[in-house]
């Protein structure tokens, strides 16, 4: 492994981190921490194995250890809000950001699986290795995450006619 190989992976790590955290600044912090960890542990990487999978596994660990603790409280507060409360008035509330907002509302575990499978196009087995969970867990998180997103998006769109009709 040399730094060229890692550099090549940075755009993908940044895309994933951005989608995971939603905030550009926090996402680049996560990428930075992941790269530092990878460089300090590069001797553990086996030449010829999948560098992308290894980097994503490191990012997952950094995320779990550092980021999630800080975010837990904020997320708990958001969980308590009814989904419809975030929409304001009438048709203006039909936002293009429905998908993004639904993604933010997912538990971290489900969001990670969804993003590895959809954005990174990892196989379910690769995702299971990156997250260090059994493949059955990957499938159930994927299923629950997608369904939850679907309901949130549908709920957001249906709430509008209910307000407009008088």
């Amino acid at each position: 492994m040399n730094s060229e190989d890692i550099l090549e992976q940075i755009p993908r790590l940044r895309r994933y981190a951005r989608a995971l955290l939603g905030d550009r600044y926090a996402a680049d912090d996560l990428v930075q921490d992941t790269l530092e960890r990878a460089l300090s542990k590069y001797h553990l990487w086996r030449a010829g194995s999948d560098l992308r999978a290894w980097l994503f596994a490191i990012m997952h660990n950094v995320f779990v250890n550092q980021v999630r603790g800080r975010r837990a409280e904020i997320e708990r507060t958001m969980e308590e809000l009814p989904d419809i409360a975030v929409r304001e008035t009438h048709s203006d509330a039909l936002e293009v950001a429905d998908v993004d907002r639904a993604l933010r509302a997912l538990p971290d575990e489900q969001r990670e699986v969804l993003l590895l499978v959809v954005l990174e196009e990892m196989s379910y087995e690769e995702a299971s290795r990156a997250l260090n969970v059994p493949i059955g867990t990957v499938m159930s998180r994927l299923s629950r995450g997608r369904e939850r997103m679907r309901r949130l998006i549908a709920g957001a769109r249906q709430s509008v006619p209910l307000q407009v009709v008088k």
């Binding site: 755009p11 993908r12 989608a19 680049d28 998908v99």
Partner: peptide, 18 residues
Amino acid sequence: GLHALFDHVLNEPVPAGL
């Protein structure tokens, strides 16, 4: 929707600090 939201990050210049 997810690709439309985030694929543009792939084309952003990588911040020098990274």
